[in-house]
Design a protein around this nucleic acid. Structure first.
Lengths: 193, 193, 193, 193
DNA sequence: TCCTAAGCGAGACGGTACGTCTTGTCTTCCA
DNA sequence: TGGAAGACAAGACGTACCGTCTCGCTTAGGA
């Protein structure tokens, strides 16, 4: 059975462009980065860029999706210790620690909000699923969408802060801080809703 | 000594431009707004725009500063009930409620991050001053900059969420939610630092 | 009565561009000339070019129309001696002689065929009007459109040859050659049609 | 010794491309035709095109050379009646009549000037050879290069007119028109030079 | 009440980046 | 292993904004 073989240049070009974008973002930020900056650094023709990606957002997103796929691998590999929201946040801090460069470009303030918006949505969805049952029992409780939103955005705030300040705290320390800040409030709400 | 009298047209033009920018932001967002959009709506010449403002960021900021001055008036007027961090946050929710249109344009996701960055800095500064003494007593406590950052960014997250979702919760309710979410964690840290 | 005043920069820019185009055509030909070549030489911004002209054809045509207007002035000034087709052709040879540079760029093989097509149409129209009556008398004569076409295209061929070969023949000599070549055939046809 | 056999695919590919080019020229003209248009219509890869031809001019020229070779066959076959300049022109009108499609693409205004330039040169050369002796006798005569140029370009003008207007005149009629227009002037010059 | 400096609209201008298109070369894969 | 398919670098195209500028007109405020 003849497997359709792919031209290996294609993937190479995509990676050159993704790497070039990261480099440019770290230099001057996502907004200020121009397509010309990226293709110059990648040594790639203008039309080649547009053959692969619609625009620089699309390019960033493609890189993010790759990073996210790796994160999910990491998550599954460590699944034993990382269950529940606090396990998930720890995993993400750890993954960010091991891919600091990429995370700074995508989730730092230099990056656009594309990646952060994605993460926000993912976490909110996860939390809504996870807290649904407990919240359902409450009669006239705390608005669950606000709760989910807060847990997710607090995490993102801390993550961004960590990345942008080149903080030397470890992933585990950051997750501890996160839990100390957020968990008490959440627990209060879950008990008294 | 002759008092230098100011041409009243100047202030009028500035306001026309500020209002036009707000309107355009609410329609298509700050990023997508062009100077041409703004001056068309304000019926103002291009060079007039640049005579008053460096660019659209500058224009937004000028409007924000005006809004902020009004907030401080509001804050002082209600100072009796609004002391401490939770009083400050309540004042801001209330002010946002009374100026919903402007807040949506500046602090909603349609606005840039200029205003939010400003608020973030202001709150962090306020909190650092306010919590400094208590935190100073702790020996090896929780990092104060993270604590301040969290309290401020949680507030901003809720405010933005409130504005963007056209939520019908009152300012007082929103502040309650905010306290329920954030206060327990802060108290734990302050006691055990 | 207030005459609508025109911004003098506009005409200046148009002329800068027209002159730059002529220069570039003489260097590398109309087809090879790029908009970038022209605006670089004219020290004009790209968008300014497109504010004035649709494309380089439009620019050439605008210059040609100006040249043509001058030709008509020249024609009227010398109208006494230049009546009839052979007077018209003499006038054009003379005008070309006095504006050799422009004619080379527009009617030489370096120029596109825009100007030549225009001249061809103009001459054919003129000749059709002029020969109509005589030809109308013939019963089943020579096709008049072919006759007009021949007289016009022969003229254009000679003109182009003259320009491209930097020939030293005078305008009057060229017109003599033209008459010697074309007049006998025309006369035969007009008599025997 | 094995006779070098030519891969029949090669010739087939060349013909596919030539035919595709003709079709595209007739649709949108030579200038507007792109290599992509041609290879799409020929169902051929881009590199294949460039393996056979330098560019679209080269391709057109190759087709023209083939056509020209056929013309020469036609010329020799009818040589008895077609001697001298007026026999040559008749032959070409006849050949154009029998290959109207190809001639329209190459010698019509849709085709570039490549073919016409070639024909012009060929005719000028032929005429120079043919008229040389007679002109040599004259002392201070009419410039022979102008005479040759005129005879050739008048022919080309008529041919192009005929093709572009889908005229129903026969080749013989066209040649008659051509002779009526051009011969008298030439004869006058030859007698009095 | 007039005069004059300045605010202003209108918009031309030089630039820069965009996303598209075409060219001619060069690499990869397949028959 | 030679030729077809098509990925690629290069660069021109026409459009959209930007921030600067020049131009006359209106108009406010001091004389």
């Amino acid at each position: 059975m003849p497997t359709k073989t792919v031209d290996r240049r294609i993937e190479r070009t995509r990676q050159l462009l993704q790497e070039a974008l990261i480099a440019v973002i770290l230099e001057k930020g996502f907004e200020a980065a121009t397509v010309q900056d990226v293709i110059d650094r990648a040594n790639v023709g203008r039309s080649t860029f547009y053959a692969h990606f619609q625009d620089k957002e699309d390019l960033l997103l493609s890189g993010f999706e790759h990073l996210w796929a790796e994160f999910e691998k990491h998550l599954n590999a460590a699944s034993a210790n990382n269950e529940g929201p606090w396990g998930l946040s720890l995993s993400m801090f750890q993954h960010a620690e091991s891919q600091r460069r990429l995370y700074k470009a995508m989730a730092g303030k230099q990056g656009g909000n594309i990646a952060l918006t994605y993460i926000q949505k993912y976490l909110s969805g996860y939390l809504t699923d996870h807290l649904k049952q407990q919240l359902a029992k409450r009669k006239k409780g705390f608005p669950p969408e606000i709760l989910s939103y807060h847990i997710a955005s607090s995490f993102i705030s801390l993550l961004t802060w960590w990345l942008d300040n080149d903080s030397t705290y470890s992933a585990e320390q950051m997750n501890d801080f996160y839990r100390q800040l957020v968990e008490p409030g959440v627990n209060m709400i879950m008990q008294n809703g």
